[in-house]
Design a protein around this nucleic acid. Structure first.
Length: 494
RNA sequence: GGGCCGCUAGCUCAACAGGUAGAGCAGCUGACUCUUAAUCAGCGGGUUGGGGGUUCGAGUCCCUCGCGGCCCA
């Protein structure tokens, strides 16, 4: 992050020379009439005789190109909408104003007022009558042609990446539009968006280790949420029939290109729906998002053509594992026999972690990477799913599905468990696992049990990882690309 | 956690077999009124990620630590 003293001092000197001339290098205002895009569009519309000539325009942006040719200077400024060329002529500006250009550097914000014209090479350009420094930059920009490619620096100083790399800006814009499209879809179906607590006295709703922090005023340890589930269910109990939240959850786990400690989840709950209804909603939701953001239902992800058109393939977990791992897990009623069979397949698993964990590993290792086209895997063992309702015809399984696309899990949903007695038993089973050393076991949430005992209607619930959905739609294999400021290990001596 | 690869000027990258660390862009000085990676002439710029070792001599070889990437678990 050190900048050479030479470059920094050169810019500081220019800053001081501006001040010496009575020019504020950080003026509080600049009245802008057009973005760069609006200015060009207005000119082109007038050129075709389809609108009035824009006359004097006032544009502003970061100086990203500067070509001084004696008494004529061309420059490009970049704003949020795009780039525009501006031309400074000494005979128009006068020698004294023109001299001020010497104090400009690439990276500075400038405002330019003037009229639009086309250069001999055909580029729409502002003939500048007046200009101002809006903010002097003291550090240099990344190289103008190659930009910034150092991956670590791109993440640590994301603003430089965003200045230099159009692709990075586009990915984050897509992220924003994905979230907007999700809201549009759910709102149009009558869902209500509410916010539930980030700070919780027990972290529930997922198998994950939580972050712990300290609430000083109450002299109490609190957790950052690992899911949105149990509070949204309380809202279902409280008569919000369709409710959702898009929010950050926090999981105290490893750091990688696939995992960020904080990530964005959508959870939705719908009374009187079951997991089949939720399945249909998920495929329609994803299709809506793709159509509205990309204008197509076919996306390329990691070299694969993925077709998001509903309906998606549906396969039971039992059949999926049979298909890809070649074993029928129901033939192995206990953890020991299943672990032994998994070992034959080259998968080392500890039977002490339980039968559900082994099945989960089989799913992750053998099935998940093969689910490139959108696929719902359904009917999970009850041990893996302490918040889901049992299947009426098979109490060892629950009405749960996960949605996979491009080899990634993007959705997880259940017919929600609303039997408070069964829920209490499931919590107690989780508690036993926790005491046996399973740090990811669900915590008992007594307050939630009391809520459930007041009655929750049959409900279909959904969790979706927004970051992964954005990865899919932008063809990024690293979650860090789709998060504005991904978490990185700290650099030494800070 | 393990393996492999990377870290050199502000940025993008070179540097044979261990022998004076270079180029382009950016910066500085100058020329230039239609350029657009402007061009031309000249100049400055380095703790080669940190620490240690081998050697007459280390960007290069060895050890170690840090950060990142890819793969595996």
């Amino acid at each position: 992050m050190e900048v050479s003293d030479e470059l920094y001092q050169a810019r500081l000197l220019k800053l001081e020379r501006l001040r010496a001339r009575g020019i504020d290098p950080y003026p509080p205002r600049w009245r802008r009439t057009h973005t760069t895009l609006e200015a060009r569009t207005a000119f082109e519309v007038a050129e075709r005789g389809q609108g009035p000539a824009p006359g004097e325009v006032r544009v502003a942006g970061r100086l990203v190109g500067l070509r001084v040719m004696g008494r004529l200077t061309f420059a490009h400024i970049q704003d949020g909408a795009g780039r525009l060329q501006v031309a400074f002529r000494q005979d128009v500006l006068g020698a004294e104003r023109y001299e001020l250009l010497r104090e400009l550097d690439l990276g500075d914000f400038v405002g330019a007022a003037g009229t639009l014209f086309r250069t001999r090479t055909g580029e729409v350009t502002v003939e500048v009558h007046d200009f101002a420094v809006l903010a002097k930059a003291l550090r240099p920009l990344p190289e103008k042609w190659h930009g910034l490619t150092d991956v670590e620096k791109r993440y640590r100083q994301r603003y430089l990446d965003l200045i230099a790399n159009e692709r990075s800006r586009r990915v984050l814009r897509t992220r924003s539009r994905v979230i907007a499209a999700i809201r549009e879809f759910l709102d149009s179906r009558g869902f209500v968006e509410l916010e539930t607590p980030v700070l919780q006295t027990s972290a529930t709703g997922a198998a994950a280790r939580p972050f712990v922090t300290r609430y000083e005023a109450l002299d109490q340890n609190v957790f950052l949420r690992i899911s949105l589930e149990l509070y949204l269910k309380r809202l279902i109990i409280g008569n919000f029939d369709k409710v959702y939240e898009i929010g950050r959850v926090f999981r105290n786990e490893g750091l990688s290109t696939k995992h960020n400690p904080e990530f964005t989840m959508l959870e939705s709950y719908e009374a009187y729906a079951d997991y089949n209804d939720v399945m249909r909603m998920v495929e329609e939701l994803v299709a809506h998002v793709a159509r509205s953001v990309l204008g197509t239902l076919t996306v390329t992800f990691a070299g694969h053509e993925v077709d998001l058109t509903p309906p998606w393939r549906r396969v039971t977990l039992r059949d999926a594992i049979k298909e890809f791992a070649g074993l029928h897990f129901e033939d192995y009623p206990d953890a020991e026999s299943l672990a032994a069979r998994a070992a034959d397949l080259g998968l080392r698993v500890d039977p002490a972690r339980g039968r559900g964990k082994i099945i989960d590993r089989l799913l992750q290792e053998f099935v998940e990477p093969n689910l490139i086209q959108p696929t719902f895997v359904l009917d999970y063992p009850v041990e893996m799913s302490p918040l889901a309702k049992r299947k009426p015809d098979n109490p060892r399984l629950v009405e749960r599905f996960e949605g996979f696309i491009g080899g990634m899990e993007v959705a997880n949903a259940y017919t929600e468990l609303n039997d408070p007695v069964d829920q209490r038993e499931r919590f107690l089973e989780q508690r036993r696992r926790f005491l046996a050393g399973d740090e990811e076991a669900e915590q008992v949430d007594e307050d939630f049990l009391v809520a459930l005992e007041h009655g929750m209607p049959p409900t279909g619930g959904l969790g979706m990882g927004i970051d992964r959905l954005v990865m899919l739609l932008t063809d990024n294999q690293s979650i860090r690309e789709v998060i504005p400021f991904p978490h990185l290990r700290p650099l030494p001596s800070e």
